[in-house]
Design a protein around this nucleic acid. Structure first.
Lengths: 146, 146
DNA sequence: GGAATTTATTTCGCATGCGAACTATCTATG
DNA sequence: CATAGATAGTTCGCATGCGAAATAAATTCC
């Protein structure tokens, strides 16, 4: 009967994520870009022309996840999909001008969110939080990489 | 250019939540109960016969969220829905025997997950994490309760 | 070179949960 | 009492992302 269980971390984590997701969706309502979509925009901002699988890995999404995200963002004219010249199975993803504009907006929005996320906590405390969140990736691995 | 932004907390949070969710889904695959569903089981374990709205509030779900969850769990024979005798609009939720059995299983599973979630962190650190997760609820409120 | 295997991506059915709009019931107010 | 407003749930269309199975192209191994 430790106090640790009383934190109900599983529940807190799910609520926190849902709240943040909803907030970002509301903030970016004008641009129509969702949190997940801005994630892909960020990846392409750093490495335009990545393979879908690479983008999925960067976002921790499986094949169906990245595939659907790409479909929606292609339909929204935020990204473009071009066949890889060296591999007939693969596709590379590129930002469109609209995607580049949306990325700039997302960057500004994320800066605000980050300020709010860290308000009331010291750098040392945020480090602990980040370390905890990161630790979940090895504690709850995807199928293969155990 | 503080180091805080480099943590990419938004991304870490979403990945952590996804990993945990997926893990719980895989663990409870036999019982067929998902993480969200076990949340409602826990609520009913504490207060059998709550109104749908109360359950939604306890789980931080809006009306459509709790409504769909109740639909699926009723179809799976985990809970039962009965009209409130005093209010023709309202429904009260009750565990079925199958739901009670699933709750017992979920409790055991959650205990394991909680151990893993806190592994490698001191009580003080987990307190900070819990405080941070909780702080998101006031930093990113639902529409009305700003 | 051809068969077996691996790899990249898609498709399907599903659960989750949102916002907006709707229905039905209850409560308050004139 | 009647009507206006609040409240409890439902429904719809959507985005997200999973596991399983399918497709197609590349690679490996006789």
């Amino acid at each position: 009967m430790t106090a640790r269980r009383e934190h109900r971390l599983v529940f807190l984590l799910s609520v926190a994520q849902r709240r943040l997701q909803r907030w970002i969706a509301a903030q970016t309502q004008q641009s129509g870009v969702t949190a997940a979509q801005s994630g892909l925009l960020f990846v392409l901002g750093q490495r335009d022309g990545v393979l879908m699988g690479e983008a999925g890995a960067a976002l921790d999404l499986g094949p169906p996840g990245i595939s659907g995200l790409v479909d929606r963002m292609t339909a929204a004219n935020l990204i473009r999909r071009r066949a890889d010249p060296d591999d007939g199975r693969a596709w590379r993803l590129w930002l469109t001008p609209a995607g580049r504009a949306a990325l700039a907006q997302s960057k500004a929005g994320l800066a605000e969110v980050n300020v709010r996320l860290t308000e009331g906590f010291t750098d040392a405390e945020i480090d602990i939080v980040a370390r905890w969140l990161t630790s979940l990736q090895s504690k709850f691995p995807r199928g293969e990489d155990e």
